[in-house]
Simulated assay, not measured.
Amino acid sequence: MKKPKSVTSELQELESLSSLADSQDAVGPLRRALASRSSSMISRAASLAARFHVREVEPDLQTAFDHFLGKGAGSDNLCSAKIAVVKALRALNSEGKDLYVRGMQHYWPARPRQGQRDQAATLRIVCADALTEVGHLELLTYLIDLLADPTPGVRVAAALALGSTGEREATLLLRLKALSVDESPEVLEACFTALLSLEAAAAVPFIGRFLVAEDEKVKMTAALALGQSEHQDALDLLTACWNRQTTQDSRSDLLVAIALLRYPRAIEFLVSLVDGGEDDAENALRALATFRADPQVLRRVELAIDRTNDPLLRRSFEAKFRRTPLA
């Protein structure tokens, strides 16, 4: 009598396939794997269920998730199995809203204090993303909790998730979070990015208020967000901030933000600084180097260099724009 294959062997055979003609062929092996209590086995099976789009195993995926969220949590302390299940359910277009909510509320081994490590942070992030995708009616309520999460990466994910909702209420939450000035610059940056995606015209003047912050990190986070917005109203805010700065480092960083705007008025402003040949010419040249592949900008910068008749600026131009200096 032929010896039955082990679950591990069955999964290995599935993993070796680039495609599957009939997903029914995978149902049995995947169900057997998902019934195990091995975190690595569940992760492999969930990944395969997603790859071959085996919708029949959705209940088995949810059962496995429940196990590792409950009494089996200790055997999945990195949450790898639970994360794999969530990703699989998303790939299968499952509406596992309750499962995603429970994952967003999971901490391991316990809710950490600020700065402490948390093994479940990635799980909360992928669950927040999944819940946003299915449009849960109570999504904002759960994302508010994650905006106060002790792990910065989770707060970033919550802010970006709010930006993808398209809801007016999300704008208000993001403004409040930004005004609280999170200790992590990445969280403030995510709030600005989300606000710009929701309502750029209203977000630009709001973000501009942070350009007068005493904290240099906060100021530059706002400046870079405005630059990346490429919004027409951002240039006046950035140039006004640039004029207020007294240190060369701050002035240089702001010119980089202005270069990010990319539109003609911003480039014209930077070229005018090179043309002036004054203290900020070198910093403006550094910011303009982003456009080295643009022949029109390159020509305008080169003409400005010619007008300055400054050999040091000429050498800097050749180096930054990666050109071979003339002998």
Rank of each mutant, 00 (worst) to 15 (best):
K5R: 13
K5C: 08
S6V: 03
S6Q: 12
S9F: 08
S9A: 15
R32L: 06
L34V: 07
S39W: 04
S40C: 08
M41V: 02
S47I: 01
L48W: 10
A49S: 12
F52M: 09
H53S: 15
V54S: 08
R55W: 03
E56H: 12
D60W: 11
D60G: 02
A73Y: 06
N77W: 12
A81M: 13
A88C: 09
A91T: 10
L92A: 07
N93K: 14
E95K: 15
G96T: 06
Y107P: 08
P109G: 10
R111L: 11
D118R: 01
Q119N: 13
I125M: 02
V126H: 09
C127E: 04
A130T: 12
E138D: 15
T141M: 07
L143S: 08
L146P: 13
P150Y: 09
P152M: 11
V154G: 04
A157E: 09
A158I: 02
A159I: 06
A161D: 01
L162M: 03
T165E: 01
G166F: 12
E169A: 07
T171S: 12
T171A: 04
R175D: 05
L176P: 00
A178D: 02
P185L: 04
E186W: 12
L188K: 03
A190E: 07
L196F: 09
L196R: 04
S197M: 11
A202K: 12
P205Q: 02
P205M: 01
F206S: 09
I207V: 15
G208W: 01
G208R: 07
F210W: 03
D215W: 07
D215V: 13
K219H: 06
A222Y: 06
A222Q: 08
L226T: 02
L226C: 08
Q228S: 03
S229P: 04
E230D: 08
H231Q: 11
A234Q: 09
L235E: 08
D236I: 14
C241M: 09
W242F: 06
Q248N: 03
D249R: 00
S252T: 03
L254N: 13
V256N: 00
V256D: 03
A257W: 12
A266R: 04
A266N: 04
I267A: 00
E268H: 14
S272T: 05
E282M: 07
N283V: 07
T290P: 00
D294H: 01
L298Q: 06
V301I: 07
A304R: 05
D306Q: 14
R307K: 14
L312E: 10
L313K: 02
K320D: 13
L326W: 01
A327F: 07
